[in-house]
Write a protein that binds this DNA or RNA. Structure first.
Length: 366
DNA sequence: CAAACGTGGCC
DNA sequence: TGGCCAAGTTT
């Protein structure tokens, strides 16, 4: 029998909990590239990259990004295209554009110094409540909560909090808990320790309670409910979209590419000309010729379908019929429509779905 | 608030 | 294989 919304924070030995957690973190923390110093800019970049993204995925991107854009000034002055290229494959590309917009604001409005107040830092694009707390605590040692999925999972177990962590309203319950528990001597290590514990010990499906440094403070371990927490409602299933894309080459071996709109899915990334199609019309080369001609103002010839690609996003699935063909006449190149050489194409940021298309095209040429 | 917003790894 | 998950934010 589960208690509902049983918050047992009053019974926690706060000092003992902090000591055990911090001692564990300081002995066991992973050696991660963004932990080499406390440069607020680097902490910021790492926190944005880590949003909804695994540590192992982020590490190589972080190294390359900091090498290419070492300071606020460097990122401020960079072309957006270069920033998106550095982000290529990481996903959630608005993170990159928001980061650069925010860094430009810091450069111009704060002389390049990342602000250290909740109000100022929270006003920056892409900096929500988690990231604000993470930067303030890790870079500046300010005792603000940094509540992410790890922290909600860990604290839901420690404190037996049965609120649904999928609901936005639940976050403030956990923030309130962190405000009571956080170490004022070392807010940086406290917040990082909670996340590190969630990543290494207090994992979603099979928590290693017998290795846990704070199990004696954990009400879920005491009651044996660690596998029932946290409560998280399931997501609904995504929809399917049928598309046709074409790799179109002119008589100078140049490839036609299109820049996606500045808002929405994969904003400002480049792609091979692509159109949504009615499932009933698939595989008709003449239909595809009309689709590409009207949509992109070019006279094209569709030669053959080279294959099909399925690409799964978090909220939808693309089913793409991939064609190859020729550009006969292009009305004009525009900012969002270019003919590029085999060498030039490497400089443009493409989403993974269209990297797959390119690979398939190269394979089809042998 | 619910939905949009990417990708890759895991079981 | 398909659903779930990973250091969330914006609209």
């Amino acid at each position: 029998m589960k208690e509902v919304n049983q918050n047992t924070i009053e019974s926690v030995d706060i000092n003992g909990f902090q000591d055990d957690l911090l001692r564990w973190f300081e002995a066991e923390q992973r050696d991660l590239p963004w932990r080499k110093d406390q440069d607020p800019y680097k902490v910021w970049v790492s926190e944005i990259m880590l949003q909804q993204t695994r540590v192992d995925t982020v590490i190589p991107y972080f190294h390359r990004f900091i090498e290419q854009f070492p300071t606020v000034k460097d990122l401020s002055e960079a072309d957006e295209e270069k920033v998106l290229k550095a982000w290529e494959g990481l996903g959630y590309y608005s993170r990159a554009r928001n980061l650069q917009a925010a860094v430009r604001e810091v450069h111009e409005k704060y002389g390049g110094r990342v602000p250290d107040t909740p109000k100022e830092i929270s006003s920056l694009k892409g900096v929500g409540p988690y990231t604000a707390g993470a930067i303030l605590s890790i870079a500046y040692g300010i005792p603000e909560p940094a509540v992410d999925g790890n922290v909600m999972r860990v604290l839901s177990r420690i404190l037996s909090i049965w609120d649904d962590i999928a609901k936005p309203s639940s976050r403030k319950i956990f923030e309130s808990s962190v405000r009571k528990l956080i170490s004022h001597e070392n807010p940086s290590h406290f917040n990082q320790a909670l996340m590190e514990l969630g990543a290494l010990i207090c994992t979603p499906t099979s928590p290693s309670c017998l290795l846990c440094p704070v199990r004696e403070h954990c009400t879920a371990f005491y009651e044996g409910t660690q596998h029932e927490l946290p409560v998280k409602t399931k997501t609904k299933k995504q929809r399917n979209v049928q598309l046709a894309a074409a790799v179109l080459i002119d008589d100078h071996e140049r490839i036609l590419i299109h820049k996606r709109p500045e808002k929405g899915l994969l904003a400002n990334l480049w792609e091979f000309p692509m159109a949504e199609i009615n499932i009933a019309y698939v595989s008709d080369k003449e239909q595809m010729k009309d689709v590409f001609s009207t949509q992109f103002g070019a006279e094209v010839e569709i030669q053959e379908m080279t294959g099909q690609i399925e690409h799964v996003f978090s909220h939808l699935t693309w089913n793409i019929n991939v064609y190859k063909g020729k550009v006969i006449i292009l009305e004009e190149e525009k900012n969002d429509l270019k003919l590029v050489s085999l060498e030039e194409i490497k400089e443009f940021p493409f989403p993974v779905s269209h990297q797959k298309i390119w690979k398939q095209y190269l394979d089809s040429r042998g």
